[in-house]
Amino acid sequence: MEHDSIYYGQAIEALRGVIDPELFVNIIDLGLVYNIDFSEPETIKIKMTLSTPHCPLGEAITNGVENVLQDQFPQRKPIVILIWDPQWSFEMVTESGKQQLGIN
């Protein structure tokens, strides 16, 4: 469990390196990542969403997730699972994300 918590923190930090190219905000602060699962020894399962289904930049974002997690955890295979329920909404943006977006 302790390891999971350390891994989780490392994964969050790594995922902050994935930026939404339109909004210029990382996917953690946008609230696009719903769950990070280390329960299987050889994989990391990321449940996440996109701000718009079928967004042309969706592939770039999911590639980014795979890239940063592969670099951070070379012994594990990242698996991105896109989900649309719950649908992403502005309420999911963190305070830091709101500041980056210029929202008071």
Partner: peptide, 15 residues
């Protein structure tokens, strides 16, 4: 710019 960006960088994001 998004179309061209996607072509060049979609595999490099985060890396």
């Amino acid at each position: 710019p998004f179309i061209v960006w996607n072509e060049h960088y979609k595999k490099l994001t985060g890396r």
